[in-house]
């Protein structure tokens, strides 16, 4: 009993240095959250700025126009996050079937090249998209030559299916990269299990269904839950480069909205306030999801 306790303390001592790092780099700077309660604007010091209480927390909902805008922004955020959650199994299945490819050089090739888009910055992705989809670009030229259309289609300017298109871009860019995690998880499966199944006469489909997928499902669930808790953050770079005045109504997600709103020094307090709200939502969601996980899978994920 006492020995166990002692062991517990010793194990804690092992991780203590890392906990200290976390405290310094992630928790200590949180004192900066108090900027959200002031009209802060550099280069003034905080003490020279007026204390405004919760002003910035209800700034975005203090009249009808803003409420309407915020509603649309949240709708977009839910839509785009929802789509990626709905298809979150894609990288996993990508990895599973990739693993089934027998020709190893080809497998390696596919695995390598599908990570390439991850390295192309969004700015450059947009330049390429523009070259391909502009009024005289390859796609329009092909369609016109084929007689399918007679006026160029303004793909990038259209406000239709924006969420879906954004999801497609994101999948193209990230699927191969995200698959790496699942490939690792698959490699971690005990080969003896698979060999045993094969000896029992299971075809590949059955092996996948009964062995591969159940083995990597824990990884999938943990990642899914971690992402779910983060659904308010879509990042903004992708949407920033693809936004224009014609599609903005459907592309403006929360992160981009805050960026556009809080540009320049004067927006620092507002951006901080929204950041706090987002964190609170995420942490609450995390706790709820953990409960859900406990109830359904019998174990929490954190």
């Amino acid at each position: 009993m006492n020995k166990k306790k002692l062991r517990g303390y010793r194990e804690f001592l092992y991780v203590l240095p890392f906990i200290i790092l976390v405290l310094i780099f992630a928790y200590y700077p949180l004192y900066g959250w108090r900027y959200a309660f002031y009209d802060y604007k550099p280069p003034k010091t905080l003490s020279e700025c007026a204390f405004t209480g919760l002003k910035w927390f209800h700034y975005m909902i203090d009249n009808d126009t803003k409420r309407k805008q915020l509603f649309q922004v949240l709708l977009n955020t839910f839509g785009i996050s929802g789509l990626s959650m709905l298809f979150s199994w894609f990288p996993m299945m990508f990895a599973v079937f990739l693993n089934e490819i027998k020709c190893k050089p080809y497998q390696k090739f596919v695995q390598t090249v599908t990570t390439l888009p991850n390295f192309i910055s969004w700015v450059l992705v947009y330049s390429i998209a523009f070259c391909v989809f502009n009024s005289t670009g390859v796609v329009n030229t092909l369609l016109q030559d084929a007689g399918l259309i007679d006026k160029p289609v303004m793909f990038l300017q259209s406000s239709e299916h924006v969420w879906f298109k954004m999801w497609l871009w994101l999948t193209w860019k990230n699927a191969g990269w995200a698959a790496i995690m699942y490939i690792a998880a698959i490699t971690g499966i005990d080969e003896e299990l698979i060999d045993a199944a094969k000896v029992d006469g299971a075809n590949r489909w059955k092996t996948i269904w009964h062995i591969t997928i159940p083995s990597i499902l824990p990884t999938y669930f943990v990642l899914l839950f971690l992402n779910l808790a983060n659904f308010l953050s879509n990042g903004m770079e992708q949407f920033f480069v693809f936004q224009n005045s014609f599609n903005k109504n459907y592309i403006q997600v929360l992160d981009l909205y805050v960026y556009n709103l809080a540009m320049g020094s004067g927006g620092y307090s507002l951006a901080t306030a929204i950041g706090i709200l987002k964190s609170v939502v995420s942490i609450v969601l995390l706790c709820v999801l953990n409960k859900v996980s406990k109830a359904t899978r019998g174990e929490g994920f954190i």
Partner: peptide, 28 residues
């Protein structure tokens, strides 16, 4: 067996979801 294992683990995981802002980070 670790002393308050869950607490420490959650303390670490939670950092994924917040961000103090660049000014306090810079000053730190």
């Amino acid at each position: 067996t670790m002393w308050h294992r869950k607490l420490w683990y959650r303390l670490v995981v939670a950092t994924m979801y917040f961000n103090a802002g660049i000014i306090p980070f810079f000053i730190t």
